[in-house]
């Protein structure tokens, strides 16, 4: 196995493109090294992207934000400006693992690991985040919900690297929130999760995005759930409709972490709770 730490995204892409064997990108390593330890993968090449300046910074502004792919969860959590603009996105990423994991893990790594239960992803989808992708010949920008195509699978080509995540312009009176259910208080993978981002005007929800995690093969954007609360003051009736729409959208499986029945039911519970938090953050009563 070869270990390389390129200084630019282009170099990283070139390394990936020229590798004949199995190549993997290392950012925080909190998934990659686990898969190596469990003998699930045998890399021939590991490309460490932490030395690439374009991937190391955070720019946060109400006109748009950019988070480098190698930024750790801990660094994200320490960025007050970003936290203020996108509390749900930051909290979601900070929920991944322990303080130790936060010291290394990245939002983009969480995305590219492509788990249906990835904590950062529903919050990013709800936020309308985009991934900036660098390829051999071109750069492209893609909505986060288009990245994961199935458990462990992404739409990235083998010689493509996500350089950063961008978050859109933040309208005034907006708020986001992310909640997940785990059996313990820490250290678990989400059994089911919900991310919500909304904007209000005079107490009425004017726009919203709702995303769910761990209820299907990929994290889901649920437009029907958003429609259930747009135009409402998030009263109980609207919340009931939100919960019902979320539960309807679920296509979960039974596995060691939860049942179909449980996930379907609790998706609605979490969406309802997350919507209330987002609404409050947007300045709603």
């Amino acid at each position: 196995m070869r270990f390389e730490s390129p200084a630019t995204s282009k170099e990283a892409v070139a390394l990936l493109a020229s590798e004949k064997g199995h190549a993997y990108i290392l950012a925080g390593g909190t998934d990659l090294l686990v898969r190596m330890k469990m003998d699930l993968i045998e890399p021939d090449l590991i490309v460490d992207i932490k030395g690439i300046p374009a991937m190391q910074s955070i720019n946060a502004s109400s006109t748009g934000s950019r988070i480098g792919a190698a930024v750790s969860g801990a660094e994200l959590g320490e960025h007050n400006k970003l936290k203020k603009l996108w509390p749900g996105v930051v909290e979601a990423t900070n929920l991944i693992g322990s303080d130790q994991i936060q010291g290394r893990c990245t939002m983009v790594g969480n995305l590219c690991n492509a788990s249906p239960a990835a904590d950062a992803v529903p919050a990013l989808i709800a936020a309308g985040a985009k991934a900036v992708i660098v390829g051999k010949n071109k750069r492209r920008t893609v909505a986060v919900e288009k990245i994961i195509t199935g458990p462990g699978q992404t739409s990235l080509a083998r010689d493509e690297v996500i350089e950063a995540i961008t978050l859109p312009k933040r309208a005034p009176r907006s708020g986001d929130a992310y909640l997940r259910f785990i059996p313990r208080t820490e250290m678990d993978i989400a059994v089911v999760s919900a991310g919500i981002n909304l904007t209000i005007s005079r107490g009425i929800v004017t726009s919203a995005r709702v995303a769910l995690g761990a209820v299907a093969a990929t994290p889901l954007l649920v437009p029907g759930a958003a429609r259930a609360i747009i135009g409402t003051k998030l009263d109980d009736g609207a919340l009931d409709k939100l919960a019902a729409a979320c539960s309807r959208a679920c296509k979960p499986i039974d596995d060691k972490r939860g049942t179909i029945e449980y996930r379907t039911r609790v998706a609605g519970v979490l969406a309802r709770r997350a919507a209330k938090i987002a609404y409050q953050r947007a300045g709603g009563a």
Binding site: L26, G28, G29, T30, V34, I46, A74, I101, R104
Partner: peptide
């Protein structure tokens, strides 16, 4: 930064 050394490569 606090990390798990099992999730860091020696290199």
């Amino acid at each position: 930064r606090l990390v798990c050394s099992c999730l860091v490569l020696g290199v």
